[in-house]
Design a protein around this nucleic acid. Structure first.
Length: 267
DNA sequence: AAGATCTGCAACCGCCCTAAA
DNA sequence: TTTTAGGGCGGTTGCAGATCT
């Protein structure tokens, strides 16, 4: 058997798809499914290679694709996931329903990479919160502040090296947005140290036991590696997610909401 | 107003993995 | 065990529209 060149056969069309081609492809797949991509264009009457058809379908024509701009929440999710997964776009896409790996890859290269680069600071070991207060007015932010100002909050992550065994939590973050012109300021863990207790064993135990059984947590930990907890802003306030370094299939949302996390952090 | 440059994104390329022959 | 087809994936390209000068 000799491998036939996929997209280099004479007479096969390349380049942008026309509305008519889209219609033919969608109609065919709706009626017959896509089964064998290589055979599909011939059966459907398209002068395209199977690979081109597959890409057009998966990246553009699939009915479950969400079109339109990415929300701030989605962008933050991509940034967080990219920190964990690197350029594994398909894995990132799997966690963002309706978005394709190609779309996420484009957003990363055109928006998010620049956003991170322009705001990048030295890596540190502080947890960052943002408020519309001026730096001189730093003070502990109460729950209602978080709720009301969730749209001005940026990325924060809290990552204990071990959920149940560490005495001192390891706290890290990415400094994502020092956007002064919107009067946002960065409130660091250091600034809060007097008022914000470091999350300790009891904090993580409480978080985990609230939502998950011991069995689930044990299974989660059995894969080894560090338990990681990511906290970031969402439309509703905060989302706290737990994942395992060594097995990305383990990904749990612990909380979503404005109230619980500041409360648990003792803010 | 027009040409130059930049930006965003759809599509392609080529490598890799897996299942089947 | 080897070879191949099929499909998945990440990197890159090229074009069209937007913005700048």
């Amino acid at each position: 058997m000799v491998r036939a060149p996929c997209c280099q056969k004479m007479g096969l069309k390349k380049g942008p798809w026309t509305a008519e081609e889209d219609h033919i492809l969608v109609t065919y797949i709706q009626q017959h499914g896509h089964g064998n991509w290589r055979a599909l264009p011939k059966l459907a009457g398209l002068l395209r290679c199977g690979k081109s058809c597959r890409l057009r379908w998966t990246n553009y024509l699939r009915p479950d694709i969400k079109r339109g701009n990415f929300s701030r929440e989605e962008e933050d999710a991509i940034i967080n996931l990219h920190q964990m997964l690197g350029n594994r776009w398909s894995q990132i896409a799997a966690r963002l329903p309706g978005r394709t790996d190609n779309e996420i890859k484009n957003v990363w290269h055109t928006h998010l990479k620049k956003r991170l680069k322009s705001n990048q600071t030295e890596p540190d070991s502080r947890v960052h919160f943002y408020s519309r207060k001026t730096e001189q007015e730093l003070e502990p932010i109460d729950d209602s502040s978080y709720c009301a100002k969730s749209d001005s909050l940026d990325c924060a992550s809290v990552s204990p090296a071990q959920c149940t065994s560490s005495n001192t939590s390891y706290v890290t973050t990415s400094d994502d947005d020092n956007n002064n012109n919107s009067n946002n300021v960065c409130v660091t863990f250091d600034n809060y140290q007097a008022n914000l207790p470091e999350p300790d064993d009891s904090f993580w135990s409480e978080v985990l036991s609230t939502e998950y059984s011991d069995e689930t947590v044990n299974e989660f930990q059995a894969f080894g590696g560090d338990l990681q907890v990511n906290m970031g802003p969402t439309d509703g306030g905060f989302s706290l997610d737990m994942y395992n370094d060594n097995n990305m299939d383990f990904w749990f949302n612990i909380f979503s909401g404005a109230e619980e996390i500041p409360e648990l952090l003792g803010i």
